[in-house]
């Protein structure tokens, strides 16, 4: 915010001339003008950097707090909240016995549903837009629409899932399948946009070479363009999955339980998910839940996301290197 004042005073200080000419600067001719101006440059850059770092610093401090609480670093008498028992037990009303197994499995099942539902459709739409789409009104509509879908609040997707899959098709509320499909709708635009980028990165000369050898459009796509774009598409999809795993609001809207007491095994079982369980635990009155169990849940959720993102980045780096 100090930056705003900086620029504000600077603006009024030289508002006499509309032309940003150095001649308007009252310090331009005095001996210490250049020094002042150089200092101002440095101070401004520093203030900007400080502002840029403020948000980052805050989040990293908070993450450190969570880690301290989750591994109970300041309370050596109590063991770490993230332990084997936590990862393999069912939820419980007693903090010491509470576990994260059901939501971990639930989140993974939701991801699996999403991969099968979203991946083909997302790639299909991206391929159409990049490889086939004529420049006409429908194409433009689809493009604008995808950009807008990405801006629809997640809670609204939850309403759509509720109305279509539960009230419409008649699936039971709060089951794995509905959860996966609903969150899938939410990340579909992200999958499409990243797949489009991956397809765009395939050099046109590859396509021309393939067509020049007599291959059809579909043969070119199947044998040349898609294999080349696949690492990029996978990377984007995995990143989208990472985003999906943290989504809570759509799951609440479709009636998913915040806590289930049995591990879901089929697509039609009631499902909780990691963020849902965190949402449930944070409302418990005992401080052990607030500062111990929830922190442990947050650590496991973030660790899963980091794992997914790291996979995506490794994948990208590996294929980038072998390509060039």
């Amino acid at each position: 915010m100090s930056v705003e004042t900086d620029s504000g005073t600077a603006g009024t200080g030289s508002a006499d001339g509309a032309d940003p000419d150095a001649g308007d600067n009252p310090f331009a001719r005095s001996g210490w003008g250049p020094l002042y101006r150089a200092l101002r440059d440095k101070a401004f850059a520093f203030a900007l950097l400080l502002a840029a770092l403020s948000g980052i610093a805050m989040v990293f401090i908070l993450l450190a707090y969570v880690a301290v609480d989750a591994f109970s670093i300041l309370d050596p008498e109590h063991g770490s909240w993230v332990d084997w028992q936590f990862l393999t037990s069912l939820p419980s009303r007693t903090p010491a016995e509470a576990g994260f197994l059901a939501p971990i499995v639930g989140s993974l099942l939701i991801l699996i549903v999403m991969v099968f539902a979203v991946f083909p459709i997302g790639i299909g739409a991206a391929v159409y837009l990049e490889e086939y789409a004529p420049k006409n009104r429908i194409t433009r509509l689809v493009r604008v629409n995808i950009a807008n879908l990405a801006g629809v609040p997640s809670v609204v997707y939850g309403l759509l899932g509720l109305a279509v899959f539960v009230r419409g098709i008649g699936l039971e509320s709060g089951i794995v399948l509905v959860g996966g499909l609903t969150v899938g709708l939410l990340v579909l635009p992200i999958v499409i946009v990243s797949s489009q980028e991956a397809l765009r990165a395939v050099p046109d000369s590859y396509r021309q070479a393939s067509r020049g050898m007599g291959a059809s459009e579909w043969q070119t796509l199947r044998n040349v363009t898609l294999p080349q774009a696949l690492p990029g598409i996978l990377t984007g999809t995995i990143l989208a999955l990472g985003r999906a795993i943290g989504e809570t609001a759509p799951l609440i809207m479709i009636g998913a339980a915040t806590s289930v007491f049995s591990v879901p095994t089929t697509l039609f079982d009631s499902v909780s998910a990691m963020p849902m369980q965190i949402y449930n635990w944070r409302a418990r009155p005992q401080p052990e839940f607030r500062y111990g169990v929830v922190a442990a849940g947050v650590v496991v959720l973030l660790a899963t996301m980091i794992l997914l993102n790291a996979t995506a980045i490794l994948l990208r780096n590996r294929y980038q290197r072998s390509d060039t």
């Binding site: 083909p120 459709i121 997302g122 790639i123 299909g124 739409a125 391929v127 159409y128 837009l129 490889e131 086939y132 789409a133 509509l141 689809v142 629409n145 995808i146 807008n148 879908l149 629809v152 609204v156 997707y157 309403l159 759509l160 109305a163 279509v164 709708l185 579909l188 635009p189 499409i192 059809s216 459009e217 579909w218 796509l221």
Partner: peptide
């Protein structure tokens, strides 16, 4: 085959528009 495949891809693209329509209609 090429024509069928193109149709399938077009359907995927159109589906995204249907999502918006679905949202607006449902709401």
């Amino acid at each position: 085959i090429g024509r069928v495949v193109k149709g399938v891809f077009l359907a995927c693209a159109v589906l995204t528009v249907l999502i918006t329509v679905g949202i607006i209609f449902t709401l």
